[in-house]
């Protein structure tokens, strides 16, 4: 993990507002970056004081549930790592939620290779979330290959949206 991702992660843990924008900021300034664990929020978020934040809908729309991959690639881009850091932060604040990490591929490529490719992408996301502190048993992976495209056109504009991993969170009712 590099410094950049640490900064983003810490910022999200500290202040939800910084992560609430639909478009992630290009840079995040974290005043607590050098203060050790001071950036960890220990409050009562999951208890409902912040209303809808403890919901899958909030996660999907405000945290960002999707990361994208370049063609044929399974390694995380800097942008993907920023989104995943926010996801890890949210999962850290909502320990009663678990996640299914769903890998996808664009339609070019064979069905079976794309299943394997989607699994590799999902695994890359899972590993990153675990490295960010999410307990491994809370994250399962799954690949849909090219079976469930987000966009249906047959050119790069759609393919770029389909080479993705979607983190689907649900309230498992079991805090940790």
């Amino acid at each position: 993990m590099n410094v950049w991702t640490k900064l983003v992660s810490a910022a999200c843990l500290l202040t939800v507002a910084a992560c609430a924008r639909p478009e992630p900021p290009q840079q995040v300034f974290d005043p607590y970056a050098s203060t050790g664990t001071g950036a960890l929020y220990q409050g009562d978020l999951a208890g409902g004081t912040l209303g809808g934040e403890a919901s899958a809908q909030y996660f999907d729309t405000q945290i960002g549930n999707t990361v994208l991959f370049p063609a044929g690639q399974t390694t995380l881009t800097a942008e993907a790592r920023a989104i995943l850091a926010r996801q890890a932060g949210w999962l850290g604040q909502h320990p009663n939620f678990s996640a299914v990490v769903q890998g996808h591929a664009e339609e070019t490529g064979t069905r079976e290779y794309n299943l394997a490719l989607g699994a590799r992408r999902a695994s890359a996301v899972q590993e990153y979330l675990i490295a960010q502190g999410v307990a491994a048993p809370r994250i399962r992976t799954l690949s849909f290959g090219k079976e469930r495209p987000a966009e249906t056109c047959s050119d790069e504009a759609c393919y770029a949206q389909n080479r993705r991993v979607v983190t689907v969170v649900s309230d498992s009712g079991a805090g940790s």
């Binding site: 079976e112 394997a116 590799r120 695994s123 992976t141 799954l142």
Partner: peptide, 27 residues
């Protein structure tokens, strides 16, 4: 479990199934 299985095919004598098993992202 935590692995994914797909792409199965029988052997010509029907005794074996060869397939892909994904574990930890590796197939």
């Amino acid at each position: 479990g935590d692995s994914m299985a797909f792409a199965p095919r029988y052997s010509p004598d029907g005794r074996w199934v060869v397939y892909s098993l994904e574990q930890g992202g590796n197939t």
